[in-house]
Design a protein around this nucleic acid. Structure first.
Ligand code: DCP
Ligand code: MN
Ligand code: MN
Length: 350
DNA sequence: AGACTATATG
DNA sequence: CATATAG
């Protein structure tokens, strides 16, 4: 049970194998492996990648036609707890700030990060890195919960009813219908300007010329993401990052590429570069400590190895559904819908 | 070294 | 309920 959670702490104590999925560094060793591009699994499987865990979705026929049909924005707020405390006390903005729970800095602002303070760091280590670190208790979650709800509510009321929360500081928003509306309205505009960064644009290679109109849709999606971030800042006072892509998996992964307070759009043809650039399969959302360990047993540690792995061998360990999920995810395929987040579940009571 | 918090699944 | 994943 708590086995899984323990992992993070063990990582901190560094008595566990290095299994950290956390992002931060930008590995970009695409050229090395670009010679071989593996084919993704056939798309008639019904299993859903990780983010589809909650969907009781039924198999859909076809897919190449609809592969890039949706426009999904993923929003992740910057150093969330720290930002909330800086709103509550603006004097903290210019100081290195850590949010303390028991003996750990659960997160810290970007001033503190310049000193080498990281998320989930022991107080002792953080004070070593930054003796002037200001600590604020983050044991009372009510303010964070409240700001979290305001963020989801704003996105839901101004952009799309299809909003799914992930933790306190992330939301997936399916803006496909808003995008369609805007494309109809702007009818003949020859060029759609992309807001923010474009993943992989400084490299060689192509964002494939897909004829389905996805390029225009994603460009509009990037503009909408810019508006979301603008509204979150002016209405609530929070900054954050956005990723724009045609599914949840890729939107989440691409948004991390430029932090903080920025946004990145992925265009079709670049998803292999994004996925393989993760290097470690552990960094694929949905592959946690347990699955990673089992994968290691099979000699699989990288995304590329997972792509190449024999499905039969994987199925012997994970079963066919999980195997299909992992394989799809490794290729950046994720058909899971954005599920509206309902009222919080109340479990454990009585 | 968080009696973290939340959700999904079998 | 236990397990897994996530923030
Ligand atoms: N194991 C964890 C992970 C996260 N959090 C809390 C503290 C964070 O403020 C918030 C959001 O998590 P993120 O991973 O998005 O981290 P931040 O938003 O703090 O930083 P970043 O700017 O890197 O997104 O959730 C936590 O309490 N325990
Ligand atoms: Mn987050
Ligand atoms: Mn965040």
């Amino acid at each position: 049970m708590a086995l899984q959670m323990k992992r993070s702490w063990n990582e901190l104590a560094s008595d566990d194998e290095a299994d950290d999925p956390s992002d931060e560094q930008e590995t970009e060793d695409w050229s090395a492996s670009s010679a071989v591009v593996l084919s993704p699994p056939s798309s008639k499987d019904t299993s859903q990648p990780y983010y589809g865990a909650s969907s009781k979705c039924v198999p859909q026929a076809h897919s190449n036609q609809n592969e890039h049909k949706r426009t999904i924005v993923h929003v992740d707020l910057d150093c969330f707890y720290a930002q909330v405390e800086m709103i509550r006390n603006p004097e903290l903005r210019t100081k290195p700030l850590g949010i303390q729970q028991k003996n750990i800095v659960v997160t810290c602002n970007y001033v503190a990060r310049e000193y080498g303070v990281t998320k989930l760091m022991y107080i002792k280590d953080a004070k070593e890195k930054c003796p002037n670190l200001v600590l604020v208790s983050g044991e009372d979650l009510t303010h964070y919960r409240e700001y979290s709800q305001r963020v989801s509510d704003l996105l839901q009321s101004e952009f799309s009813t299809l909003v799914e929360k992930l933790g306190f500081d992330e939301n997936f928003v399916d803006v496909s219908s808003l995008v369609e509306d805007r494309l109809k309205a702007y009818q003949g505009k020859p060029k759609m300007e992309v807001k923010g960064h474009i993943f992989g644009s400084e490299n060689e290679g192509s964002s494939s010329q897909c004829s389905c109109g996805c390029h225009q849709r994603l460009a509009v999606g990037s503009q909408i993401a810019g508006e979301m971030r603008e509204r979150l800042k002016e209405v609530i006072g929070l900054t954050g990052c956005a990723g724009i892509a045609w599914n949840k998996l890729l939107a989440k992964l691409v948004g991390e590429r430029h932090k903080p307070n920025d946004q990145t759009t992925l265009f079709p043809g670049r998803e292999q570069q994004l996925m393989i650039g993760l290097e470690k399969a552990r960094r694929i959302p949905g592959i946690g400590h347990s699955m990673n360990k089992k994968l290691s047993t099979l000699g699989i540690t990288t995304v590329l190895e997972l792509q190449k792995a024999s499905s039969a061998e994987l199925e012997a360990v994970f079963g066919s559904q999980i195997t299909a999920m992992m394989k799809n995810s490794s290729f950046g395929i994720d058909k899971s819908p954005v599920n509206k987040t309902g009222p919080p579940q109340v479990l454990k009571a009585c």
